[in-house]
Amino acid sequence: MPEPKDQAPVVRLRGVRKQFGPDTTAASGQPIHALDGIDLDVHQGELVCLLGPSGCGKSTLLNVIAGFVKPDAGTVEAFGRPVVAPGPERAMVFQEYALFPWMTVSENIAFGLEIKKAPAAQVRETVEALLAKLSLRGFGDRFPKDLSGGMRQRVAIARALAVDSPMLLMDEPFGALDALTRRSMQEELLRIWGELRKTIVFVTHGIDESVVLADRVVVMTYRPGTVKRIVEVGLPRPRQPASPGFAAVLAELTALVQEEQMRHERDEASAGAI
């Protein structure tokens, strides 16, 4: 991967803060500082993983970039323009697939193009190409309920790719898959990324997943969610757990995440004690 640091970043976050609540159901009754003082640049063609224990605000951060969540403070820019609303140039792949169950696989993939009023021939062509690219040939007329989890997520990725978004935002997309399927989906994602040169922001709580995928791993702290450290994964691809250097990066990230995990548990314990 050439380092395109000299170019302007495609996503630029400065001082992003977001607070939810106060949550009356929580024992403390305190507002939740989901994000605080987040500065982050994502560059063209980069695959960045947001990593942290659950509840650290990594999904919130992704939703801020997507335009679903408005930050309380700070600036969010994508492609040089402030983010004010969701848009197809920041296509999102959701954790629970979120395929429209009333549409066939092909209709799901075509959805984004059709609402852009793309000509029918182009829609058909794109759908065919994506079905082939994601090993979904022959499944175009099926409904999502007839597909396995892995295939559903492939359709969701195809749907996001159909709008030819320069960037993919992925919210724990493989979290619900079994280990083997997750493995092959990771490979598939890397293949597509290599082919299409998309910028990808990928939220995960799987440390090994982030080492397999990322150019850079952004480790987040637990409440308030801040950037704890950004780890560059300089390993050549494809990466296997047995590849040289893999274990070292994994250990470094594990230590960082565990620190936060323990802080989280201490907080829970002290909240429980009150």
Partner: peptide, 20 residues
């Protein structure tokens, strides 16, 4: 979630209503 997907892909509110 379906509304969010549609908004993310750029659906207008008319499309949102008719197709989602």
């Amino acid at each position: 979630i379906y509304l969010r997907v549609a908004q993310n892909l750029g659906a207008s509110s008319a499309t949102l209503f008719r197709r989602v």
